[in-house]
Every structure is written in structure tokens, then in C-alpha cells.
Design a protein around this nucleic acid. Structure first.
Lengths: 205, 205
DNA sequence: CGATAAGCTGACGGCATGACAGGACATGTA
DNA sequence: TACATGTCCTGTCATGCCGTCAGCTTATCG
């Protein structure tokens, strides 16, 4: 229930909010700044969103929609031999790239989810699920054939932990760098850990 | 440069801020609320801290000091056989317990660090370092003896990724649970992943 | 008890929030 | 072009928090 012009204004507000989240601390993002940046007034903002949080939620839903493509990083891939190593590499690259691209919104989603907001928990769950679910199925398949990282280990817990690791590492490269993990070292390490976690074996040379 | 009474007031403000961080969204924590809860006035708060962020930074430094004890989870442990499995278990338990106990402050530290605030990056780096540094040395030792998860893999990157994983998992149990990873399944999975990452082998039965 | 300093607060200008009513604009009709 | 209509935007206002100052209260010491 909004005309063409209204949609455009609304979208412009969302875009500007997204940019502000990349440049200023979440705590300091003010409705008045978003409105000014969009060339409109605070009153207009409140016409479309009850508060900043609601607009952030909408941005998060856009990111959620885009996350669907992450499933392709896992679906129908081989985990044996050199192909297995490549699968792990591409998975790491793909997840890292996605998380870095949506850096700003994802850290706010993370915060709100950690604070217990169920709407954001749900969104984060579904974003991670785009990778975790197919990955868990892959692990199940490997375990059924007697392979995999461990007999009685839950595939969902393994997949979830690995994806969580990738997301967290991409969200905080600086701390790891200060601890001696160079940017260049990180991807091989993550690739190894993912391959180990999924297959129980070190990746092929 | 503060007397006995001043110190007490200051500490009371910090305590109340800590409690508020556990109960309300960080974005909504107001100076006036903290002051009221501490039975004092906003003006008093500003006498001790330039703003909320500065007070949070101080809370983070307390957590940093406590994190020193985390090193004991790694120092002088064995990673072979059943003892190795136990080492991994206790490491997982210890890190998870620490992160859960300091849940509220750590999620704010994480946010501020992700937003690029160097003071918070530094604190997070040092907290993680309490585990990452000794763990990286352990991995180095194992690699020197021809063991470990992979030849050319950076020990710092491995240790950093593993610890980051533990921290991130403990910060967001709900999403993983919704994805089918029961609370009970999580620790074994993490233990396996840590053991695999450090030694390159599955933990002993 | 009186003096000095430390600690606390009431009060104020400034700014953001969130709601409303009325003005501005695009679109369709003649 | 003139006009009618519904959508969209904004000026304005009450409210509440921020951050600061002058001045008051409380502790400490001679």
C-alpha cells in the first residue's frame, strides 16, 4: 500500500541507512541523519518505519534473501581428493566474501540477536542455515559411508560450528592479524579446518 | 585522583552499567538510567566518565584482566591419546564458560571492535590472545615434531580461528539450536574440531 | 568548632524523538 | 490550460535525554 513515489522514498531511506551503518557506530545512528542524507525530513522516515530498528530489520531481510545463493557453495560438491580441497576452498572464499560484503548489516544483526531479539535471531538462523543445512546433509552422507570427522558427532553441530567460525573470522580480521595470523595465512587455515571438520582428513596437497 | 567515596560511587556506576548491558539493548542504554539505578544523578556520571562508551571500555578492561586465567587451559597440557581429548574438552568448556559469563560486555566489545574502534579491537585481541598465543605455541611444538593438522599452515591462524569459533558459538547458541544442533551436541562437536585442528587427528575414544 | 577540599545535584540550553494537521505534488479528466 | 483527487511530504510541537555549570552538601583535618 504505497505508490511509486512512496516506494522510491522508502528505498532511498533504506539505502542511506545502510550507508550510515557502514560509516558510523550503530549506537550513534540517528533518524535525523538518515533523513537528511536522503534529502528528506525525520517525519517522512517515521511514515515508513516505526523506528530505526524496524528499518534495520528490513535491510537484514534483504541480506537474508541474498544469502540463499550461498547454498550453491555446498550443493552437489565432491569432498574427496583434490576436488575436496577445492570445495573447501570455495566454501571458505564464498562465505568470507558474503560476510565481508554485508559486513555492516550483519554485525548489527549479530548484536540484536545476541541481545535476544527473536526477529533477528530468526534472520541470522536462516542466513547461516543457507550454508549449515546443506553442509550438515553432506556430513551426514559422509558419515553414513563410514567417513567423516567422528562417529557420534552431530552433523548439525559440526556444520553450525564451522560456519559460525567462518562468519566470526570474517567479521574480525584485525584481532587475528594482531595475534600473528596474517591475512594470507587465514584462508589456508580455515580451508584446512573446514576440510578436517567435514571429512575428518587433511586436505590433499 | 579520587577519594574513597568517589571510588565507591564510580564503582557503583560501573556495576549498574554492567547490569543494564545484560538487560537492555546497548543502543538503548541511557546515562540517566544508569545514574538512577545507582541512586545518583546524571551529572555525577559525567564527573567520572566522558560518555557511556568510556565506561564500557573500563568494564571491558576488567574482563580483560580476568581473561588472563584462560591461559591455564592450554599451558602445559598433553595433546596425545586420552589426555589429548581431555585437554580439548577442558579448553572448550573453559572458553565457553568464560564467554558466557561475560556475555553482555563481550558482545558490546565485539560490536565496537567490528565498527573499527581501535581501543576495543585491542582489548578483544588481548582477551583472545590469552588462549590463542599459548595454543599457537602448542601447535608450533606439535608441527615441529611432524605432527599437527597440516604442514605449511600458520599456527597463529589455526589457533585464532579455533578460539574465534568457540567465542562465536558461545555468543549465539540460539541460532545453532534452531538449526538442529542441540545444546548437548555442541560441546562434543567443538571438542572434536579443536582436537582435529590442533593435532590433525580425531580425539581418542 | 571552623576551614578547606571533595563530592553531588538542580537547572539550563540544545538536540532528537515521535505525532499531527495541513501544504505540495503527481496524475487523470475535460 | 484549468481543475479535482488522492498520495506524499514537512513545519511544528510536546516530551525527554544530553552534557555543563554554579552552588550546595558532606567528609577531613587543624
Amino acid at each position: 500500500m504505497a505508490g511509486r513515489r512512496g516506494q522510491a522514498t522508502r528505498q532511498k531511506l533504506l539505502d542511506c541507512l545502510g550507508k550510515m551503518l557502514s560509516t558510523s557506530p550503530y549506537r550513534d545512528v540517528r533518524v535525523i541523519d538518515v533523513a537528511r542524507k536522503a534529502g528528506t525530513s525525520p517525519a517522512t522516515f517515521y511514515q515508513y518505519f516505526p523506528d530505526v530498528e524496524a528499518a534495520v530489520l528490513e535491510l537484514a531481510e534483504v541480506t537474508l534473501r541474498e544469502s540463499a545463493s550461498l547454498s550453491e557453495l555446498v550443493a552437489g560438491r565432491s569432498w574427496t581428493g583434490k576436488a575436496g580441497r577445492q570445495t573447501a576452498e570455495e566454501l571458505v572464499d564464498g562465505v568470507l566474501a558474503f560476510w565481508r560484503r554485508h559486513d555492516a548489516i550483519l554485525r548489527v544483526v549479530d548484536l540484536a540477536a545476541s541481545e535476544g531479539d527473536r526477529r533477528f535471531v530468526r534472520i541470522r538462523t536462516r542466513i547461516q542455515g543457507a550454508v549449515v543445512k546443506p553442509l550438515a546433509e553432506t556430513i551426514d552422507g559422509l558419515q553414513a559411508r563410514g567417513r567423516g570427522s567422528g562417529g557420534g558427532i552431530s552433523s548439525a553441530a559440526l556444520a553450525g560450528s564451522l560456519v559460525t567460525m567462518l562468519a566470526a573470522v570474517s567479521a574480525q580480521p584485525k584481532s587475528l592479524q594482531s595475534l600473528g595470523a596474517k591475512q594470507t595465512d587465514l584462508k589456508p587455515a580455515l580451508t584446512t579446518l573446514v576440510h578436517l571438520g567435514v571429512t575428518g582428513r587433511k586436505p590433499a596437497a
